[in-house]
Nucleic acid binder design. Structure first.
Lengths: 207, 207
DNA sequence: AATTGTGAACCTCTTCACAGCT
DNA sequence: AGCTGTGAAGAGGTTCACAATT
């Protein structure tokens, strides 16, 4: 399949959210122009993004909100639930366990890992914290498909390496470091300081 | 000044982090090739990014780690401390207060806001939680420059609107919604589900 | 010999603009 | 008449490749 750009995929996520909101508000049809307006982009961008995957609208009429949401769910793989694991039960990790948005989109925590003996064995939200050493066994048992890395930067690469060995192929990385992985493994980064630093840059510039 | 792309700015942040690590490990010089290698990009990209701001290296020798880090700190505005406010003291918000990476880069929480009467008046890490209604007054007193928005999506726009009124011009938004702001105000988004959905997409594709 | 700094080439993403459908 | 879908044009970002410098 033709390679679709990361920006298109992340915009599809925002369209998905937009459609969810519209549906909740009882809106049944929507134009590319309206979706664009809500998300501060152009309508051509919306149509082009969708066009990579099919034609979901009706000329002159726009898109049925429910149908389009369904189509995007299919594209993004949101028709199924995803089993995810949290590695590193610190502040960030704990916050993510409680983060409703994940559950709402079908991402379900099935396993927690840490290497701190104090934490291992404890339970959070009915989930036991396992020793990271047992990750392969537990990950298989719980059929983990995605791992969220919330360990200190210095441990992140090693943790990912071993999970790749266990067969995990998708990672959401919160550690402020670039993780190396084989070709067929995907890492997405969530680096909160980078965005703050961009704000710092813009404030500094505009003085 | 010439408009610099967002990607260049965010790469500068990663170079900055790379240099910090190298310095901690006693490395005194580094080539664009080494910086590139660490971050999985090309050396031309590193040199081009830097070239927008000056020439900081020596041909044949590379860059002095300490000097280059200093230069990037100047570019990104990291020579000063930034006063930041947290709006919305929920799970995510609490985790951010404890997030060392922010403090390390010079972003210091000076004010917390919430609208829940249960929370108002409480203290976290020596910081009092103020009523969001008092935001303007407190923001001025504490000289807040950047606000982190960690309130539910449905309240985010209103909260930002009022803070813009108070004169705040930079926002890091964790709410899964596109915020509208005037031209001279900057919003950066941290949308964790979007990255997870990208992983979902790639796993679905590669099946 | 090694490595930077950079114009030019290349590639990718976005926007335009309009034919085609409803 | 209104709005989609899309090829073509335009803008922007990345990589190449090499002269310049140490």
């Amino acid at each position: 399949m033709k390679k679709i750009s990361d920006s298109t995929i992340s915009r599809l996520s925002t369209y998905y959210r937009t459609l969810t909101n519209l549906i909740e508000n009882g809106v049944e049809t929507v134009s590319s122009d309206e979706i664009a307006e809500i998300n501060n982009i152009t309508s051509a961008q919306v149509r082009k993004d969708l066009s990579f995957f099919g034609s979901f609208g009706k000329r002159g009429l726009g898109y049925k909100t429910k149908d389009l949401r369904e189509e995007i769910a299919k594209i993004l793989g949101l028709k199924k639930k995803w089993n995810i694991a949290l590695v590193g039960v610190g502040n960030i990790g704990r916050a993510l366990i409680d983060y409703d948005e994940f559950k709402k989109q079908g991402f379900i925590f099935k396993a927690l890992f840490d290497k701190d003996p104090q934490k291992i064995g404890q339970e959070i939200k009915g989930l036991r914290i396992h020793d990271i050493e047992d990750a392969c066994y537990v990950a298989k048992e719980k059929e983990i498909e995605i791992a969220i890395i919330a360990v200190p930067a210095k441990n992140a690469q090693a943790v990912v390496d071993s999970l790749v060995q266990c067969g995990i192929r998708a990672f959401l990385n919160f550690a402020p470091i670039t993780i190396k992985v084989p070709e067929n493994v995907m890492v997405k980064n969530e680096n909160m300081s980078i965005e703050l630093e961009a704000l710092s840059y813009y404030l500094t510039q505009s003085k």
